[in-house]
Amino acid sequence: MSEMSREDLLDVVRRVYEERDPVPEGLVARMQAAAALEASDIDGELLGLMELVERSEELVGARGTATYTLRFVHGDTDLLVRVAVDDGRSRIDGWVVPPEPMTVRAGEHAATVTDTGRFELTGLPLGLLRLSLEPHDIARPAFSTPTFEI
């Protein structure tokens, strides 16, 4: 039995991976979009970026609604968001702790945080999303979450 060259062996490995473990459809486009979004966020360093500290998924509901919870932290501000996805649209219910007057933006959607720290964003399209938090106190700088996918 003859030995395979390095190139022939790598070719076999490549073919096996392409056949048995292909790149998921749309992954390359989603990653390119995420990279473009990150690159286009010139103010990212100035805004301050929250840190994702927890993610939990809940059981799928009877109607096929998928929900999950994300928790972000920036300094002394804690942000908890519950994302629900149903029929291609999503809803975010969020809580800012400690509560403070601010506007939360997700693309063209915006909500004002109540005096209890709660806000909601409805009718959000599926895809990549970043929440920007803009305190009404102009002395306090805005900050945002890392980009996440709904």
Rank of each mutant, 00 (worst) to 15 (best):
P22L: 08
L49I: 01
L10N: 11
F119T: 02
V23S: 03
R14T: 10
R20H: 10
T69H: 12
A106R: 07
E57T: 10
L70Q: 03
W95M: 14
D21E: 10
E7P: 00
V81C: 06
L59T: 15
A39M: 06
A34C: 11
A36N: 12
A66Y: 03
D43T: 10
L128W: 01
T116N: 13
V16M: 13
E108W: 01
R55E: 09
G107S: 04
W95Q: 12
T112G: 11
A34W: 08
L126F: 03
R63W: 02
V81R: 05
L59F: 13
S56K: 09
M102Y: 04
R130V: 01
V113K: 03
E100G: 10
L124M: 03
V12M: 10
R15L: 09
V73F: 01
M102K: 08
S90C: 10
E19R: 14
G75T: 05
Q32R: 12
L70P: 05
A39Q: 07
V23K: 02
R105Y: 07
V85N: 07
A106W: 04
Y17L: 15
T103E: 12
V73K: 02
S90V: 05
D78E: 12
R89S: 11
T112Q: 12
P99C: 03
G127T: 05
M4D: 13
G44V: 03
D41C: 08
E38Y: 07
E38Q: 10
V60H: 02
P125T: 05
L70A: 03
G75K: 06
E134V: 14
D76I: 10
A34Y: 09
T67E: 08
E120T: 02
F119K: 04
A39W: 06
R118L: 10
L129N: 00
V28F: 08
F148M: 01
H136L: 14
T69Y: 04
M50N: 07
T116M: 13
V81I: 15
T67H: 04
S132G: 11
V28I: 09
L124N: 02
S132R: 15
R63F: 09
V85I: 13
R71K: 14
H74Q: 15
L129P: 03
P24N: 02
E45K: 13
P141H: 02
P125K: 02
V28Q: 00
F119P: 09
